[in-house]
């Protein structure tokens, strides 16, 4: 790796990181697990003058339970989420999603906060975070604020996060016993990113769908909630026919991406098929 030259800071406290970010503005990039930033620096597609490595900030790490929520520090690695007993007990969908990310090396280094803040249109976390209706905790020069996942993702690599802010934690409310989650994904075979990833959180009342949330990644410029599917199924019996009919609405109002790995029509088809299968799995 031969990147351009840069100044390197390794703050150990959030305040310090925020003031560095204010001081250096657009020249600075925040480095978490490095799995998005470093590849672009290697190719000199990004040549930030300043790197603020937040990896040493202890307060951004770890998973805890608080007031019916899982609180996940932004620097928690994919592997930690995949292997955490707490996560597997309380919100297994998170562990299931983490297991689908990249490869072992990526999961050991990459972080949930880094992935969400980068907002790659084919990243895995956004689908699950959307389906879980998570709250994202953000700290900036004016203090703390919380934003809903549905408001966080705004476009291709675009989020609600300000240039002078840092995503610090993700709050996921722990679902009840009648709620089940599933994440299903077709891997882009080279990168391991999602050609389509569908996260479903389904609450049953008997054989009826009491509520369902469907987060989809990889299909569009930004991850989205498939509201057509959700409204189509809520209140309905969870029959194969009803599920299939609802899943047909997985790309309603969505412009699917087209690239060398998948055509627009294929992505549309994948979104529908994977939505159907993910709902079936969550309903079973």
């Amino acid at each position: 790796m031969i990147p351009g030259s840069f100044e390197y800071f390794a703050p150990t406290a959030l305040d310090e990181a925020l003031s560095l970010l204010q001081e250096h503005g657009d020249d600075a990039k925040v480095l978490a697990g490095g799995h998005s930033l470093i590849p672009t620096m290697k190719l000199r597609l990004a040549e930030p003058a300043v790197i603020i490595d937040i990896g040493g900030i202890g307060s951004l790490k770890g998973i805890s339970e608080s007031d019916g929520n899982l609180v996940i520090g932004a620097l928690t690695t994919h592997h930690e989420l995949e292997s955490s007993d707490l996560v597997q007990q309380k919100v297994p969908l998170l562990a299931e999603t983490a297991a689908e990310i990249g490869d072992v090396q990526v999961r050991n280094k990459g972080t949930i906060g880094g992935s969400l803040a980068h907002a790659d249109p084919a990243a895995d976390w956004p689908a699950t975070i959307l389906a879980l209706d998570a709250d994202l905790q953000i700290t900036g020069p004016n203090g703390e604020r919380t934003v809903k996942a549905t408001d966080f993702f705004q476009g291709l690599y675009e989020t609600d996060l300000g240039d002078d802010e840092i995503l610090t934690a993700i709050h996921v409310s722990i679902p009840d016993a009648n709620t089940k989650g599933t994440y299903l994904k077709l891997h882009q075979v080279a990168s391991g990113f999602a050609l389509t990833g569908v996260a479903v959180v389904l609450t049953k009342s008997g054989d009826t769908c009491q509520s369902v949330a469907v987060g989809i990644t990889g299909v569009s410029e930004a991850p989205y909630r498939a509201s057509g599917v959700e409204s189509g199924l809520t209140g309905s019996a969870l029959s194969a026919e009803n599920i299939a009919a609802a899943a047909e609405r997985a790309v309603d109002g969505i412009t699917a991406l087209e690239d060398i790995h998948a055509s627009e029509a294929y992505r549309q088809n994948l979104a529908k098929v994977y939505t159907r299968r993910a709902i079936e799995a969550a309903a079973s």
């Binding site: 590849p39 190719l43 075979v189 080279a190 990168s191 060398i260 790995h261």
Partner: peptide
């Protein structure tokens, strides 16, 4: 277009 392992499998 397939100049890295991100796109060449």
């Amino acid at each position: 277009l397939t100049g890295s392992f991100m796109d060449y499998a």
